[in-house]
């Protein structure tokens, strides 16, 4: 399931820290769903409200994300 969201933009709704999974909100089929998220760089911390891109899936409802400053959600 998490595979189908790879490549999509997401917004961090809870901090992603090296120790804990964060949470991101991703658009799925004209709705939004929340996924567990960890950072691509395991040591980095991604703050709330940061724009990220889903770069991979860890299975289940957990995805890998990387921060991005350039990409914007298609309106």
């Amino acid at each position: 399931m998490a595979v189908e969201v790879v490549g999509k933009l997401a917004r961090v709704t809870a901090d992603i820290t090296p120790d804990h999974l964060g949470e991101v909100m991703i658009e799925v089929r004209a709705g939004t769903e929340r996924f567990m998220a960890c950072a691509l760089d395991k040591d980095s911390t991604i703050r709330k409200h940061t724009q990220v891109v889903v770069v991979g899936s860890l299975g289940g409802r957990t995805v890998e994300v990387a921060p991005t400053n350039t990409m914007r959600m298609p309106t």
């Binding site: 809870a14 901090d15 804990h20 999974l21 949470e23 929340r34 289940g60 409802r61």
Partner: peptide, 22 residues
Amino acid sequence: QDKFAQQVRDRCSQEMESFGLV
């Protein structure tokens, strides 16, 4: 509240996923 939500995620997400619940 953030810390509480963090705790909830840490502890409950696995079980909830096995239940298929969000």
